[in-house]
């Protein structure tokens, strides 16, 4: 079981309040991603749940039990660190077995569980190596192995993929999702990468300056961002945010339209503009179009290979059903 409840949890370092009182419930078996720009307090929040930092106020409950004052080792949580934090002087086998050894399990049971974890993570051939002899991806797997052998109530991941190169990152992302589907254990995952958040999460918590901006499933956040910050943060390429006269026409201070919800035509449309840089990805093509009456270039996403030359005049038409409207406080207008 792993239902985690934060009740008015607050954290201050001296006079600086990094997390103002905050409420959040994480259901058992959920994959929750904390996402936000660096310095938003997402890692601190994770460390509060882990017990590596003391809360300055409020209560943390794990499965209904007050865990606020419980030391990290007794919370039944496992954590995977950004730097992997493997013990360099121990073999992979000993690294994975360490939490079991600390729990006082007998040698045979330790060996059985290490074997099982190594099987799952494809580490069987590396059990006798030292962490220093492994690649980044393998180290990551060892760190995960060390977490899963304990059969914890919940896994905590602190930006676990940020030290891997892009190709490995995609692979590990899938592996972690796969692991979650199999174990069905609560996972809390911290990242600054909204793609990781969108692809892995059951529930995303968007944080800014210690505040929760929005909580919801990836598609809820995509479809109905509650404010300008979430609108700009979720989705890639970023949503086009347009103010001024064009927004006024829609009775809003700002309107937002995602690049994939704009159609391009060489003949006619709502906004006239000139094509700037085009980015060809093969599967998609991104155009950056400078439009009359809109300050920032508008990003447009078109499926497949489309060729428009630099400087060419085009017309853009936003899909009216997919238009997001925000008031002058940046909040969504329903």
């Amino acid at each position: 079981m792993g239902r985690i409840t934060l009740d008015k949890v607050r954290k201050a370092f001296g006079d600086v309040e990094v997390i103002p009182p905050l409420d959040l419930t994480i259901e058992d078996g959920e994959f929750v991603v904390f996402v936000g720009p660096s310095g938003c307090g997402k890692s601190t929040l994770l460390r509060l749940i882990a017990g590596l930092e003391d809360v300055s106020g409020g209560e943390i409950r794990i499965d209904g039990q007050d865990a606020t004052m419980v030391p990290p080792a007794k919370r039944g949580l496992a954590m995977v660190f950004q730097s992997y934090a493997l013990y360099p002087h121990m073999s992979v086998r000993k690294n994975i077995a360490f939490p079991l050894r600390m729990a006082g399990l007998d040698a045979a049971e330790q060996e059985r569980r290490v074997k099982a974890a190594a099987d799952v993570l494809n580490l069987t051939d590396y059990l006798d190596r030292r962490p220093g002899q492994l690649s980044g991806g393998q180290r990551q797997r060892v760190a995960i192995g060390r977490a899963i052998v304990r059969e914890p109530a919940a896994f905590l991941f602190d930006e676990p993929l940020s030290n891997l190169d892009a190709a490995l990152r995609v692979g590990m992302r899938l592996e972690i999702s796969e692991l979650h589907k199999r174990l069905k254990t609560t996972m809390i995952y911290v990242t600054h990468d909204q793609v990781e958040a969108m692809t892995m999460a059951d529930k995303i918590v968007v944080l800014r300056a210690g505040h929760i901006e929005q909580v919801g499933s990836p598609l809820e956040l995509y479809r109905a961002p509650r404010n300008l910050f979430v609108a700009g943060f979720i989705g890639s390429p970023k949503m086009n945010l347009i103010g001024g006269a064009i927004a006024k026409q829609h009775d809003a201070a700002t309107i937002g339209i995602r690049p994939e919800h704009i159609s391009v035509s060489p003949e006619a449309g709502d906004w006239k503009g000139r094509v700037g840089v085009s980015e060809h990805l093969g599967s998609d093509t991104f155009f950056h179009v400078t439009c009359e009456g809109i300050g920032e270039p508008v990003t447009v996403r078109v499926g497949g290979e489309v060729d428009l030359s630099y400087g060419q005049t085009v017309w853009l038409t936003p899909d009216a059903n997919q238009l997001h409207r925000f008031d002058d406080k940046g909040l969504r207008i329903a």
Partner: peptide, 11 residues
């Protein structure tokens, strides 16, 4: 972080 990992691992 390594010492924190040990703490999380029950040490």
């Amino acid at each position: 972080e390594i010492l924190e990992a040990a703490r999380m691992d029950g040490a």
